[in-house]
Design a protein around this nucleic acid. Structure first.
Lengths: 138, 138
DNA sequence: CGAACTTGGATGACGTGTCAACTATTCCGT
DNA sequence: ACGGAATAGTTGACACGTCATCCAAGTTCG
């Protein structure tokens, strides 16, 4: 189920908005904060992505003009990631039909009991893995 | 949940058996048939993978000695994929602890009602996607 | 102060996934 | 039989993910 739904959503987003799911996630997190500006490591933490992965992805997104980098005055090592106007336009164009697709592919065939059951299952399993597995959040 | 469980299982398999999940899947499908020998396209169909993806992956696995390629006498285009002794050894070493990890991370925290609910949800969602989405199986 | 350590982040190598294009064979209709 | 379509499989380019490594700016502590 996960494979199939994920692939369908990714295809939909790619063909309609020229964004990958990952691009979308980054943009969502950026639009979620004041000034659409975040430190790389905050973003990494919020997305639960490795710093390296994020850094690579941000490079690709910067090359496409979706985001920009700015120096951080208070910490000479740091960098801010900022949403460009193109980035904002892209996510605003993509979001409605994505939400729609999620509803169509997923929630439309679920009852509210299904959703409750899924939430409960998901919480238990996730908690189990994070309790058992080595370094879940690094 | 899917992300977290998938990552945990992948990490477990990689560190204990030097196999990726994808390697493992290929090996499972090979051991499932007579003579551990399959045409590439049958394997692709069985795994629901693109031919291209499979071809790339088989090249990498061949380089590592897990599988081999053989010419097909009845169809000059075709190729058989065969399991090498190394490949068989690898999956036999990996399988038990993988099964164990799946149980630990997943089924241990689920009731049989949970499993029933998940199966039902999964079937409905998958059917919906495959009915709606363009080209699900290509 | 200065050496050791930590932290923020980038980079390079390599494995993986997708798409489009390609080659070589087989099939099929006339 | 032959010329076009379908089929089997590979390849190349490029996006994505992970790991190990690196570097530079900050922090700690003698």
């Amino acid at each position: 189920m996960n494979t199939v739904v994920g692939a369908a959503l990714a295809r939909q987003m790619q063909t309609e908005s020229m964004l990958s799911m990952q691009d979308f996630e980054v943009l969502v997190h950026l639009t979620d904060v004041e000034n659409a500006r975040l430190r790389v490591s905050e973003l990494a933490r919020a997305m639960r992505w490795e710093k390296s992965r994020l850094s690579h992805h941000l490079s690709r997104m910067e090359k496409r003009g979706l985001i920009g980098r700015e120096e951080c005055s208070s910490d000479g090592r740091g960098a801010f990631i900022v949403l460009t106007p193109e980035g904002r336009a892209a996510i605003e164009a993509a979001a409605p039909s994505h939400v729609d697709a999620v509803r169509r592919y997923f929630f439309d065939v679920l009852t509210s009991d299904d959703v409750k059951a899924l939430r409960s299952i998901s919480e238990r399993v996730t908690a189990r893995v994070e309790a058992t597995d080595t370094c879940p959040s690094e």
